[in-house]
């Protein structure tokens, strides 16, 4: 009887060990389509087409034009802010900086902050802001673009609400999401950048995403 019990015990342990090693995977967000293709033998195959971030062209803090090529084969964290924002942006960037510090010099990870203040936040202003935040390095890109381009990208692609609002404290309102993008330009998570515990979760999820094959 004792022997049977010990076998059972061992079996349980084995099951546990297996379930622990099963890797966690992040969800893939956004609309998706099914695409039916035929292989060489004429058999039908269904592919899932995920939503991806479309190509873009913005000026960064060094007035250099950047596109998605800058983020090729990297995972990155994107957000929308403006430099004269005195409400949620300082806390978002304080939290984002902890991620930056955690993954500093990791070549697979980048950060991308878009300004929504197309009138004032020209590259030179972004440059100063980046310097004062203490993150003026290529790993963290601050970008400026036309209102239409930035706002469309925010709302349609990164799914972050942004708008000009003269009634708001600093003239703009926006959401504080930090959006996690994978190497295939797909959204893998969105985290409230004003909450340290959500940012902590993002830090972990970045690790999970890095380990993904």
């Amino acid at each position: 009887m004792k022997k049977i019990l010990s076998y059972l015990y061992a079996a349980c342990l084995a099951v546990l060990a297996v379930s622990c090693t099963q890797e966690k995977k992040l969800p893939i967000y956004g609309d998706r389509e099914a695409k039916i293709t035929k292989d060489a033998n004429g058999n039908e195959k269904i592919d899932t087409i995920y939503k991806t971030i479309p190509n873009f062209k913005f000026l960064n803090q060094d007035s250099i034009e950047i596109t998605q090529d800058t983020f090729k084969d990297k995972i990155y964290v994107a957000d929308f802010f403006f430099t004269s924002c005195s409400t949620i942006c300082p806390i978002m960037h304080r939290n984002m900086k902890t991620l930056f510090d955690a993954y500093k010099d990791n070549n697979d990870i980048m950060f991308l902050s878009h300004t929504i203040d197309f009138k004032y936040d020209k590259p030179s202003v972004l440059k100063k802001y980046a310097q004062k935040l203490g993150v003026d390095v290529p790993q963290w890109q601050f970008v400026w673009g036309d209102k239409k381009d930035v706002y469309t990208l925010a709302e349609k692609d990164y799914l972050v609400a942004v708008q000009e609002d003269n009634a708001a404290t600093d003239g703009y309102v926006h959401q504080g999401w930090l959006v996690l993008i994978d190497k295939h330009k797909r959204i893998r998570g969105a985290y409230d950048g004003t909450k340290p515990e959500e940012v902590e979760k993002l830090k972990n999820d970045m690790g999970i995403l890095l380990a993904e094959k």
Binding site: S86, T87, I88, I91, R94, Y129, L133, G134
Partner: peptide, 16 residues
């Protein structure tokens, strides 16, 4: 105040 000056009054880079 905390959003700029921080939980422990540490400020934020050279911004605050």
């Amino acid at each position: 105040c905390q959003n700029c000056h921080g939980k422990d009054g540490e400020g934020l880079g050279e911004l605050a």
